[in-house]
Design a protein around this nucleic acid. Structure first.
Ligand code: NAD
Ligand code: NAD
Lengths: 205, 205
DNA sequence: TATTCATTGTGATATTTATAACAATGTTAT
DNA sequence: ATAACATTGTTATAAATATCACAATGAATA
């Protein structure tokens, strides 16, 4: 009953609403948010049905209440952290990105099997050895992981993560992971994405 | 008539088939490829309908012919290049990734507005000044761009790229770009992706 | 040769996702 | 007070996407 696409958009709306809030407005209409999000106003209203919060036809939605509703729906009661495995080129970029100022969902720990990286702090995040990983995950109740190890290592790393209690994986390795029922995997396949863009760049002449 | 999801999967199949080819087999059944791709066998056969190449019920698909068919369908007759704008943390990681050994779709040029980066070669890719960008795009007939500049800069950069002839954008900035009809945009929104994973990590207990 | 078998290609069907349509609401202008 | 209006919430409809089902194929076996 929970639509996958809806979850992604709610996360987007939250970010846009937070930006909007900084600009002043206390309320917003669906068509205004739609313009920023690049979706239709009907899509927005439909997505909001799941929240249990209603706007008014006259004032639209109160930004603060809307943000509360989305956060209540999306987030865990206690703040949630993620662990990143593979502190290479991409892993470091992600640590820089998700480290700075995001209270919501932080990368709380990193792991690598390269002795040169272990026990060092990279972009404010401690890098543990792989043997420490299960302990870190259990201690900090982490359920979400980011995989940025080379493709041939990804499945083994995923297995270890799941064994340690991880239930959601954001996978950047260009491999389709085999995971048991109940584990959610989102693939960020950049090579596929770029080829798709190149294809459609050619279609509409 | 061309399904967006199908294009993405064809790109994935091509990569998997190339790997498979290296392992020896000259032919493959839909269910074998399906296992690697993490999709159903029926999905694969349906996707292949668009190619105009048929396998045989007895031997399955000839890997070499299948690869030819996919490449003929996906790729431009002449090889296509991409330009990357914003040589920061993420941009450099992407240059490293798309530079090494990918004949198919290379990042042929990079741009930045930071004087410290301009006219330098980063991971084998020349970094041009922004004023040179339109000239580079026209000279090398580039139609695909990757945006890795800070969010507030992304729309302006997109406008300039489109003005210069770009028709497809892979956008990493957490902003929804407004583009004219006929320009294809694929958003790689990692913050949204991570929140989605965190959400579903919590669903299946 | 006839039979068995796993597989293909594709029409039919189901599910997911997006759009359209409109009564209900409540504010504003007259 | 009332008519005009823009917007909401939700139902109805459409479009995109995925799965199912099975006749047709042809190699392998008896
Ligand atoms: N660099 C990019 O922009 C980019 C883009 C798309 C996809 N990817 C994918 O992301 C992954 C990482 O790419 P990268 O460029 O950062 O590679 P990288 O080689 O720079 O980094 C890989 C890191 O993983 C570590 N590692 C290797 N095996 C490990 C293991 N078994 N356990 C723990 N750590 C291990 C290495 O020590 C290294 O620090 C690859 O799968 C790559 O295909 C990268
Ligand atoms: N770092 C990540 O892993 C990550 C992850 C997800 C999204 N992003 C997004 O990708 C973008 C880049 O992230 P980053 O971490 O690489 O940032 P960064 O600050 O390291 O790099 C940005 C680069 O863009 C250049 N730049 C700035 N304005 C420009 C302009 N007008 N024209 C051309 N170049 C310009 C800067 O000189 C710099 O080199 C941001 O929008 C960020 O939100 C980054």
């Amino acid at each position: 009953m929970v639509r996958e696409k809806t979850i992604g958009r709610l996360s987007l709306y939250r970010r846009l609403l937070t930006e909007l809030q900084g600009e002043g407005p206390k309320s917003v209409y669906s068509h205004q948010l739609a313009a920023r999000a690049g979706v239709s106003a009907a899509q927005i209203r439909r997505d909001f049905m799941i929240l249990g919060y209603s706007g008014s036809p006259a004032q639209g939605y109160e930004v603060a209440k809307l943000l509360d509703s989305i956060t209540h729906f999306l987030d865990a009661p206690e703040s949630q952290g993620a662990i990143l495995v593979g502190v290479g080129n991409l892993g470091r970029a992600l640590l820089a990105y998700f480290g700075t100022g995001r209270a919501r969902l932080r990368i709380e720990a990193a792991c690598d099997n390269d002795p040169k990286k272990i026990q060092r702090v990279i972009h404010g995040c401690h890098c543990y050895a792989m043997v420490e990983m299960p302990e870190v995950i259990r201690r900090q109740s982490i359920r979400t992981a980011i995989i940025t190890v080379p493709a041939p290592e990804a499945q083994a790393v995923a297995n270890d993560l799941i064994e340690a209690g991880i239930r959601g994986i954001l996978n950047f390795a260009p491999v389709r992971l085999h995971v048991p029922e109940g584990v959610f995997v989102e693939n960020m396949d950049m090579a596929v994405a770029l080829e798709k863009v190149a294809f459609f760049a050619r279609q509409h002449v």
